[in-house]
Structures are given as structure tokens and as C-alpha cells.
Design a protein around this nucleic acid. Structure first.
Lengths: 214, 214
DNA sequence: GCAGGTTTTAAGCAATTTCTAAGAAAGTCT
DNA sequence: AGACTTTCTTAGAAATTGCTTAAAACCTGC
């Protein structure tokens, strides 16, 4: 049997995953420059040189982590069309993004830091993939408005608001936890999700679908 | 005449300010660990040892920068009471925060990174000052609701949404700029402010005051 | 069991970086 | 002018860190 590089079984693949997971944790807490390869190695329970065997440079490992996070952002919203109901689509999109914040807070933090620091490692993503996605989604929103399914609104700022208010629960969890005195539970997240949906849909002049009501 | 330390005139004070400004820029882009003192010195146009003369350690300089940013977050909302009009107060609060995002994006970024990284240097701030502030503001919101001036809503999540959607324009400016293809102008910010106000107040079931309408 | 590779490890180089030591220069007050 | 403080500079110690080298250990198919 021929050994396939990058397969998800075998020693190599398992170590790769262990390293990526450890790196995610470290990068989220200390940033790219602030994270020593040794730290990632300790976190992964491997010698430093072994980490560098799988990822030649720290930068390469960082980009690998970053790319993994980008894949998290696929959503049902990607495929929505004029024929869909904006209230349902937007509510579901918000719920999806809240769920990512709850289940993958580290990935969200790394992405946030990368952007705050100027997004040098995401130029390709922004200029191609993401910009096109945005164009398509804005077109759908405008089509909804033209069809009278959605009161007039600027889609651009609507999307920014959705991103901001959902990612906030991952990125700023330290602040939220400190203010509440305790971590947000899954139930808290469900409640927060309903509140965000209510705020955003209400702001758009849309009624909240039954499935997302409190 | 006795020389007063920390006065805002004289060589020392001027250099302190130059250093703080340079440090703000560097920390926002590279983070605490990612910023070398030498870099700050270059940015400030001073020798490295001179920077360390004014701030004994990099950490001390970082905390000084951080504390400066905290002072930016005073707001008229701090003093609002039940007797005020929630729509006016909240709209003004959003507008204020948007203005901070426009005029002090670097400070916002540093604060954001600090929280993403676990807010180790803000424990005092959160546990005392900020938690009390939050308690007071939530009480006002609840009082508005009790007085029938504001439809029932969870103040906590409302505040999170306001923070998130306003700070987003500072913290994620790199993403926004890339998606738009150009930087947001002052006029763009005014427009964005109106949109955020419309979304949030609409979500609360409040009418947008004339002064903040588009 | 051995020849091919893959994976693991120890040792360490070269560059960077924080911070100190110590004194020179400049300014300030009496 | 002379004493004193503040500011600036030079030189370098001590620690950290990314990455390399090179060899050992481990597979795996035959």
C-alpha cells in the first residue's frame, strides 16, 4: 500500500492534528510572534524538532492553522437565493455563527487577531474568495429588497453587524466571563442567540420566525 | 520653580507622549510580545535606551498604553438615568462609540487584542470599575423597561451587541477596507453609524430619534 | 533480516531581544 | 559659577528563539 501524505490516518497525520490543535491554542493566546515553537511542542507533548519536522517553519504552521479556521465559515447562507425567506435565512445564519463562536472560540480569536494586525496572511482570501462571496450575498439582499421581502437596508452594514455581534461571543469571551462572573453555558448561548436574532431581525423590520423565538 | 513629574510640558513629558504614541501603533500591529522595544524607539525617533529611561520595562510601557485607552471609554451613557429617553441615550452612545472607532482605531485594537489574549493585564479594571459600571447600566435599562419606556429586552446582550457592532469598525478595519476596496471615509462612518443605530434601536422596538435618522 | 523510507531526537548555531551599568551631556536653580 | 537633577548615550550581559545538522530509531514490504 502506498502511503498518502495528508491522509487522516497514520502516525504522521495524527501528529499533524495534535500539533495543529496545540498551535491553535497557543496562537490564540499569544499571537504569532508571541508563540514560541517550544510552547507548541510542549502543548502537543512532542519535542520541538519534531514539530519542525512536520511544519518546516512557524509561519507555515501558522498559515495552516489559519486556513483551517477559514473552512469553518462555510454557511447555509452561502447558497441562499432571492426565493428564500430573508428572516429564516438571516436567523439561521446568525444561529450558525453563534454556534461557531461557542464551539470554535480559538479559531475565531486567531482570525480576529490576524485581521486586527493587518491581515497580511489573508490577502489572497480577502481579495478573491471573500470579496466574491460578499458581492453575491449583497446581490441577494438587494434582490430581497427589490422583491419587497425585506425593507430597504444597506446589506453591507447588516453583514458587518451580524459578524460583529456573533463573533464577539468568542473573541471577547474573557470580558464577558469576567463581567458575568462565570462562563457562558450552552443554555446562555442559546439565549444570546435568540437575543441577537431578535435585535438584528427587528432592526431589519423582519419578524422573528417561530423556530428562533424565545 | 519645582519640576513636577508627569506634567504635560517639558522635554520629558513630550518624549513620554511621543513614546506612548509610537508604542500604541506598534502594539496594535504586532501585539505585546511581537513588538520589540527597538521598533517603538525607531517609530518614536529615539534611541532604544532612551525609551527604557522613560519606561523601565516594555510591560510597564504596555500597561501605560492600555490605561490610556481605558480613559477613552467614558461616555454620556455613564450618567444616564431612568428619566432620560432610552432612544436618545442609546443612539448617542452608539454614535459616541462609532466616533471612538473612527478617531482611535489603534486604541480599540490594543484593547481587543488584550481581551482576546485573556485580559491578564485588565483584571483590576474588569473586576472593579467595569463590573460596577455594567451593574449600574443594567439597572437603568431595567428601570426603563419597568417604566414602560423600553420594550422588554435583556440589557446584557444589548450592550454586548452595541460594543461589538461599533468596535468592529475599528478592530476589523483591515477586513472592511479589503472588502470595500477602499478605506471608510468620515462620511462612510456617518452612514454606518446611522445604520447601526437603526438596527439596534429597531431591534429594541424603539423609534430612531430625528437627530440620528438618515 | 535487510533495504528503503519515515519519524524521532540531541546538540547547538546565529540572530534577536530585554534590560543593566555607568558615565557623558544638558539643563536648572541658588 | 557651581551644585544638582534630568536626560541621553555607549557597551554589553543574559536570556530567548527560530531553525539546522546529523545521526539514531522505527517502520514496512520483500
Amino acid at each position: 500500500m502506498i502511503k498518502v501524505k495528508g491522509a487522516d490516518a497514520g502516525v504522521g497525520a495524527m501528529n499533524r492534528r495534535k500539533i495543529l490543535q496545540a498551535a491553535e491554542k497557543c496562537f490564540a493566546q499569544f499571537g504569532l510572534k508571541g508563540t514560541a515553537v517550544q510552547l507548541i511542542a510542549d502543548e502537543a507533548g512532542l519535542p520541538k524538532t519534531n514539530v519542525l519536522y512536520y511544519f518546516k517553519t512557524k509561519q507555515e504552521l501558522y498559515v495552516a492553522v489559519l486556513e483551517e479556521t477559514l473552512s469553518l465559515w462555510n454557511s447555509h447562507f452561502d447558497k441562499a437565493t432571492v426565493n428564500d425567506d430573508p428572516a429564516m435565512v438571516l436567523a439561521a445564519y446568525i444561529a450558525e455563527k453563534m454556534e461557531v463562536s461557542r464551539t470554535h472560540p480559538l479559531a475565531s480569536k486567531i482570525f480576529a487577531m490576524e485581521i486586527i494586525n493587518g491581515a497580511q496572511n489573508l490577502s489572497g482570501y480577502f481579495d478573491e474568495e471573500h470579496a466574491l462571496w460578499m458581492q453575491g450575498r449583497l446581490a441577494v439582499i438587494d434582490a430581497w429588497i427589490a422583491a419587497g421581502k425585506l425593507p430597504p437596508i444597506e446589506g453591507e452594514y447588516l453583514l458587518y453587524t451580524i459578524w460583529a455581534s456573533t463573533q464577539h461571543y468568542a473573541d471577547f469571551s474573557a470580558q464577558i466571563t469576567r463581567l458575568r462572573g462565570k462562563k457562558m453555558t450552552k443554555a446562555d448561548f442559546e439565549n444570546a442567540t435568540k437575543q441577537v436574532i431578535k435585535l438584528v431581525l427587528g432592526g431589519c423590520g423582519l419578524a422573528v420566525p417561530e423556530a428562533f423565538k424565545e
